[in-house]
Amino acid sequence: MNKTSPYMNPYLAGVMLGVVLFASFVLFGHGLGASGGVAKIAGAAIDLVTPAHTENSSYLVSLLRSSDNPLDTWLVFEILGVIIGGLISGLLAGRVRLETLRGPHISVRTRWIFAVLGGIITGYGVRLARGCTSSQALSGGAVLSAGSWAFMFAVFAGAYAMAYFVRKLWN
């Protein structure tokens, strides 16, 4: 165990996260989610700018038109909470600072470009796989969904396969 780490012991943090996940199943009958809320907010923003486009996109129609208010969904409330909770923990630990986290050998600008690029790729994969590390890997993993376990190992496989090619970003 890395004693100099300013963060919580990873196993203890895992137990804490697992208890939160269990609480979500007890309270709501399903696990945690993160990407869905981003999808709803992003979709609603597109709808605001070009409402005509929404009607031509089967994806946006099913994302936004299935209820009266696409933002009145647990996904959005949950990520609001995630942001508040992250902020509280960050404030307590003195980690709230306007900064860019990056590998030691790249410029801030390079990091920004790759952050957006990584986000785009992840965002595409999330929707294709119908969920992210929270909703698929953690939540589906805990209830032993076969597809969630396949997804989880695919994530690690994709990341390890790509890691070599982007090693300059992080090392």
């Binding site: 790729i121 294709l128 796989a129 695919a154 396969a161």
Partner: peptide
């Protein structure tokens, strides 16, 4: 999707 996600 998982492979793409991992790359991202």
């Amino acid at each position: 999707g998982g492979l793409i996600f991992g790359i991202g």
